[in-house]
Design a binder for these strands. Structure first.
Lengths: 116, 116
DNA sequence: TGTAGTGTATTAGTTAAGTAGTACACTAAA
DNA sequence: TTTAGTGTACTACTTAACTAATACACTACA
C-alpha cells in the first residue's frame, strides 16, 4: 500500500501521464529495495483499480483516465478514512479549524522555502 | 500502538482520571481479545511515557499528571506526523482549508445526531 | 533467428508479531 | 495463614508478510 501510494503520488503530480510507461517490476524492485513479488502485488492492485494497464512482455502503462481514477480513489480514502480520524484527533486535543489553518499557513511557508 | 491509543483516548476523555486504577493486564487481554503479553508491552510503553504507573501485585494506575502527559504525547505526534501527511494529501487532492471546514461542519452535525 | 528485457509463477526460507501455556513473586483481604 | 487476584517472565508455536532464487512465456529489435 505504501508503494501504491508512492505511485499514485507520481500520477497526481503529473510526473507520469496517460500512456506513459512506468518502470518495470524488476527495475522498481531494485530502486525501492524491495522484492519483485511485492512490486507485482502492488501493480496488480493498481491494475485492478484501473490506474495502470499491462502489455505482456513490454511493461505497465498509465491508463488514459489514470489521473481521474487515482484522484477518485485517493479522495474516497481521504474522506472515509483520514478525515474522521483527523477530526477525532482534533477534538481530543481541543484544536479548532482556526488552529489548523494557522498550522497550514506555516506548512505552506516552509514548502516555498524548500524550493528556491 | 492501537491499544495504547485506545487507552490514551480514555484518559483524554476523562473516563479515567489521575489515581484511577485501570483494568488489569489479564482483564484487558480478555476484553480486547488479545494476548496478555501484548497488553504488557502496551502498559510498559505507557509507563515509560509516564502516563500510568504500577503497584506490584495490585495493578496499574493513571499518573497524577497522566492527562497532561497524554495530551503532550498526542499533540507532538499530531503535529509532527499527522499534520504533514494530512496537508500533503490536501495538496494532492486540491482541497483548501475552506473545504476542510465544510467537511468538519458535516462531521460535527453527524456527531450530535448520534448522541440524542 | 537470436537476444535482451518484459511479465508471471512457483517453491523454499526468513523475520516480526502475536498466541498459547505455564510458572513464579507480590499484595490485599478473608 | 490461606486464597484470589495482581504483575512478571519464559519457552514454544503459529501466522502473515516479505525475501530469495529460479524458471518460463511473451515481445521488440538488431
Amino acid at each position: 500500500m505504501q508503494i501504491a501510494d508512492h505511485f499514485c503520488e507520481h500520477v497526481l503530480l503529473k510526473k507520469w501521464e496517460a500512456g506513459d510507461r512506468i518502470p518495470s517490476v524488476r527495475e522498481t524492485a531494485v530502486n525501492i529495495e524491495v522484492n519483485p513479488n511485492t512490486v507485482m502485488r502492488t501493480f496488480n492492485y493498481l491494475q485492478e483499480q484501473g490506474i495502470i494497464f499491462n502489455k505482456r512482455g513490454i511493461g505497465y502503462f498509465v491508463a488514459d483516465d489514470g489521473f481521474e481514477k487515482t484522484k477518485a480513489l485517493k479522495k474516497k480514502d481521504f474522506i472515509t478514512q483520514e478525515l474522521p480520524a483527523f477530526f477525532k484527533a482534533m477534538s481530543l486535543l481541543n484544536l479548532s479549524i482556526e488552529d489548523i489553518r494557522q498550522y497550514y499557513q506555516q506548512y505552506l511557508d516552509n514548502q516555498t522555502d524548500d524550493v528556491p
